[in-house]
Simulated scan of single mutants.
Amino acid sequence: MDWIKKMMHAFALISLLILVNACSVSYKFNGASINYDKVKTISVADFPIKAAYVYAPLATKFNEKLKDVYVQQTRLRLVPRNADLQVEGEITGYNQYNQAVKADGYSSEVKLTITVNVRYVNNTNHEEDFEQQFSAFRTYDSTQMLTAVQDELIEQMVKEIADQIFNATVANW
């Protein structure tokens, strides 16, 4: 009779282990929710700078980062045109403003902002098409020259905007 109890416990334990293994949950950490049976290609046009103030390296850094996000976080093939997904637009703003003022009336902090206008077309489901603006900003101490900090700040903001665009287009949160 004791061996029957042991067999029942062993059977229950094995059943529990099988049940736990069968009920696994899968997560995608990049957030992409793409039906790769329908969507195989993406085209990302170069975004020209249409802002009043132009910092030439900004366009190159932004264009490369945006393409990299899709290539690194999806299985989509990057093509020059006629893709299943199309991303295009322009950099519409590169501005700096005095953010905070000290007691003596001089600026203590400067806010640098990048704004990008994006047109997204999903040729497999046009209900997902949109045109939207994305932006990011960073502040820096007004005792520093913009030329001393802008490359680092641009790197951060470009990454943030590229992630925003990625999430809006293929993450479907």
Rank of each mutant, 00 (worst) to 15 (best):
147 T>P: 03
115 T>F: 02
33 S>F: 02
114 I>W: 02
114 I>S: 06
98 N>F: 10
18 I>G: 11
81 R>A: 09
62 F>M: 08
29 F>W: 00
24 S>H: 11
9 H>C: 15
82 N>R: 09
143 T>M: 12
99 Q>E: 13
117 N>R: 05
104 D>C: 10
118 V>C: 01
126 H>W: 03
56 A>I: 15
168 A>H: 04
127 E>P: 04
14 I>F: 14
23 C>I: 11
153 L>C: 10
157 M>G: 01
67 K>V: 06
69 V>F: 04
46 D>T: 10
37 D>Y: 07
107 S>D: 09
71 V>Q: 07
88 E>N: 08
7 M>A: 15
114 I>D: 03
122 N>L: 00
166 F>Q: 04
69 V>H: 00
106 Y>H: 09
116 V>A: 05
7 M>I: 11
135 S>N: 08
76 L>K: 00
119 R>W: 03
28 K>N: 10
152 E>Q: 15
131 E>V: 10
72 Q>W: 10
29 F>I: 05
109 E>R: 12
140 Y>S: 06
82 N>G: 09
63 N>Q: 13
31 G>H: 02
149 V>H: 07
156 Q>Y: 12
77 R>E: 09
37 D>R: 07
106 Y>G: 04
110 V>Q: 11
51 A>Q: 06
49 I>V: 14
3 W>I: 11
52 A>Y: 08
79 V>Q: 02
11 F>C: 12
13 L>M: 14
86 Q>H: 07
166 F>I: 02
2 D>P: 07
7 M>G: 08
160 E>I: 09
148 A>F: 11
62 F>H: 06
123 N>K: 06
21 N>P: 09
94 Y>C: 14
91 I>M: 07
52 A>E: 12
134 F>G: 03
44 V>N: 04
8 M>P: 07
168 A>R: 00
172 N>T: 13
38 K>C: 01
18 I>H: 08
148 A>G: 15
